[in-house]
């Protein structure tokens, strides 16, 4: 049972030479989860038990660098009586390896599933670290096509950004289990539901919802602190978030930002951002303005409310304009 597994974890976490496992057993001080204690990420990944049997790792809100080795997105795992499902694996073989070590410290149950919430390299490039476990690699039915069109580029960019040493071992693993409709997986006395989404953040977003605790890994459907990155459809994304609110999960793991948040606090800022971006761009289109004007002005009121704004915002405007001008 899960309770039995916690005991050794706490011990491990408290051992002075084991600084990498940080535990948070209570749900109450959620804000405290936002920024787990600092420490090195060599060895195993910092994970926080955000809910009964659900562990999440906080990735840096940064672009990938040699120093962070692609550890720039949140990921985690769900432990059942018989099996473990890993959700996302970070941006390099090494982040995957660190997460795998964290799983091994938390439980001796086998890793049966490695689920990718979408195609982006900061979420999938650690997959190869789990190949020895021979799990099912699970993704949205459109994940394989999306990765197929991008993998060479993703790998090249990751190698360039992180350098050869941090990149070593990184490869793309194609999904072995493709999900095109809501699908239940049984981890042993624990069922999780995979919910493929229509085009939103990307055209292959997959939500992982734990029935037992009502916790949902939303991947990059939720950005917090880190400015959103639009690589799908601004209209679709807005609708998906609205619909999600009608069946709001008890606890949310965003793709970037704090490892655990509650609805609607998790969704309000990104809904505000997407709403502002869409309304500004639509207004410019309506009065016959150009994409260049939009890039320079749309959504500028969001500046200062997000990290990495300059790295992503203008590209988001470009994408939003190219989409909304067809309305």
């Amino acid at each position: 049972m899960l309770k039995n597994e916690k005991t050794p974890l706490i011990r491990l976490g408290l051992r002075p030479n084991r600084r990498s496992v940080c535990l948070q057993l209570s749900l109450a001080p959620l804000m405290a989860l936002a920024w787990p204690a600092a420490g090195k990420t060599s060895g195993n990944a910092h994970v926080t038990e955000i809910s009964d049997g659900i562990f999440a790792h906080h990735g840096h809100v940064e672009l990938q660098t040699e120093a962070n080795r692609g550890d720039i997105s949140n990921n985690g795992f769900i432990v059942g009586d018989e099996a473990v499902a890993v959700v996302d694996t970070g941006g390099s073989y090494q982040t995957g390896l660190a997460l795998r070590e964290a799983v091994k410290q938390a439980t001796n149950k086998p890793i049966k599933y490695v689920i990718n919430t979408h195609m982006h390299p900061d979420h999938v490039l650690g997959d190869a670290a789990f190949l020895p476990d021979n799990p099912q690699f699970v993704g949205h039915a459109k994940l394989a096509r999306a990765l197929g069109a991008r993998s060479a580029r993703y790998l090249e960019a990751a190698r360039e950004a992180m350098g050869e040493a941090a990149f070593a071992g990184t490869e793309i693993v194609m999904p072995t289990l493709e999900v095109s409709e809501p699908t239940e997986l049984d981890l042993g006395n624990r069922k999780i539901v995979l919910e493929p989404q229509p085009t939103a953040h990307t055209d292959n977003d997959l939500v992982v919802r734990d029935r037992k605790t009502g916790t949902a890994f939303l991947g990059d459907l939720i950005f917090s602190v880190h400015v959103p990155a639009l690589d799908g459809s601004i209209v679709g994304w807005t609708i998906v978030l609205e619909k999600f609110g009608t069946e709001a999960p008890a606890l949310v793991v965003p793709g970037h930002g704090p490892v655990a948040m509650q609805w609607p606090e998790a969704s309000q800022p990104i809904q505000r951002y997407l709403g502002k971006l869409a309304s500004d761009v639509r207004a410019i289109i309506k009065r016959g303005g150009t994409i260049k004007e939009a890039i320079e002005t749309a959504g500028e009121s969001e500046r200062g409310k997000w990290k990495l704004f300059d790295e992503f915002h203008r590209r988001n405007v470009t994408a939003a304009f190219a989409e909304l001008e067809w309305e």
């Binding site: 459109k142 580029r153 085009t199 055209d203 690589d231 459809s233 989409e323």
Partner: peptide, 14 residues
């Protein structure tokens, strides 16, 4: 950089 080999179409089906 990369504009010519960038994958087309954010939403391929649409």
């Amino acid at each position: 950089a990369g504009g010519c080999s960038a994958p087309a179409l954010k939403d391929m089906d649409a």
